[in-house]
Simulated scan of single mutants.
Amino acid sequence: MPLPLKIVSWNINSVRFRIEIVEKFLREMAPDVLCLQETKVIDQDFPTAAFRALGYRHIVLHGQKMHHGVAILSKVPLAEDDRLDWQANREARHVGVRLANGMRIENVYVPAGGDVPDRDANPKFGQKLDFLERMTRWSEALSGPTLLVGDLNIAPLEADVWNHKQLLGVVSHTPVEVAAMAQLKASNSWVDLGRHFFPEPARLHTWWSYRSADWTVNDRGRRLDHMWATADIAATATRHHVFEECRSWLKPSDHVPIMTEFQI
């Protein structure tokens, strides 16, 4: 008989600084698996005790001092973890695991890409495009049931940003990034679970800049956080959530958690 499984992805923007809201979220929503990005802590200093106290005893980390970092914390057993270097410079931007049911979870933090959408003028933008190219080559060779989650740092659709025309020249929504993401998505016929449950033009933002004193006033959001599934996993998905209210919590991340529920 299929069992329910709730999986969350959240760019937490420093797990130690925001541990209180992580604990609050886990107590309220009780996901089975939590995938974090931008943890900003080396593995030895990760606050594992707080997670174990809430039942997340299976912990796989890929940390880095002050920057980047990803982690998977789970109530269900994890195996076969790996850490791929799509940035090609040893930055901690990926961790993958396999669940007991054979499903893989790949947790990714794609580089933001700097402020100028030009490879020559801004090397960070070129690094982002190269990262996506390496991911695409990996995806082409991928086999088996897989869920790809994380901060992919691209809002691909017009409905994924607060103003499509104004953001066409802004990194995260430029045509070249959208095209790169489309190639990645096509490379394994990934199903975008967010848009599977909330087809455009439905509102589905997951990030709001800190630059606005009150993010709710102008509501200039973007959908940078994603969950993609291979077709076999997508067929088991039953619900998708975006927790906008977390953006107003004490000491919030600029990203909010997203969650998909499955019957696997």
Score class of each variant (00 low, 15 high):
L3S: 07
I7V: 15
W10V: 08
N13C: 05
R16T: 07
R16G: 02
I21N: 15
E23L: 04
K24H: 13
F25P: 06
F25R: 01
F25A: 13
R27C: 06
M29F: 10
P31Q: 11
V33Q: 03
L34P: 07
L36Q: 06
V41H: 08
D43M: 12
D43K: 12
Q44A: 13
F46S: 09
T48H: 04
T48E: 11
A49C: 09
A49S: 14
A50W: 02
R52A: 06
G55F: 04
R57T: 11
I59C: 14
V60P: 03
L61Y: 14
G63E: 08
M66F: 13
H67W: 11
H67A: 10
G69Q: 06
I72A: 04
I72F: 10
L73N: 02
L73M: 05
K75D: 00
V76D: 00
P77G: 00
D82V: 02
R83H: 12
D85H: 05
Q87N: 09
Q87S: 10
A92V: 09
G96Y: 01
G96S: 15
V97T: 13
L99V: 03
L99Y: 00
A100R: 00
N101S: 15
G102C: 08
G102E: 10
G102M: 06
R104E: 00
N107G: 08
N107Q: 07
V108M: 12
V108G: 00
V108F: 12
Y109D: 02
G114I: 04
D115H: 04
V116K: 02
P117M: 01
R119Q: 10
R119D: 06
A121P: 01
A121F: 08
P123F: 11
K124I: 02
K124D: 01
F125K: 10
F125W: 05
G126W: 07
K128P: 00
L129A: 08
L132Y: 13
R134M: 06
T136D: 05
W138P: 03
E140F: 08
S143I: 10
G144I: 10
P145Q: 07
T146F: 06
L147T: 03
V149Q: 11
A155L: 15
A155N: 15
P156V: 12
L157V: 06
V161T: 15
N163P: 01
H164I: 01
K165W: 08
L168P: 03
G169L: 12
V170G: 02
S172P: 05
S172Y: 12
T174G: 09
Q183E: 13
L184A: 10
S187I: 09
S187G: 08
V191D: 08
D192F: 09
H196V: 04
F198I: 13
F198R: 15
R203Q: 11
R203F: 08
L204M: 15
L204Y: 13
T206A: 07
S209N: 04
R211L: 14
A213N: 14
W215K: 13
V217W: 01
V217L: 12
R222D: 00
R223N: 03
M227N: 09
A231G: 02
I233A: 09
A237E: 05
T238W: 02
R239V: 01
H240A: 09
V242D: 02
R247F: 03
R247V: 01
K251L: 14
S253P: 06
H255P: 05
H255Q: 06
V256E: 05
V256N: 11
M259N: 03
T260E: 03
T260M: 10
T260H: 07
F262G: 04
F262V: 04
Q263A: 10
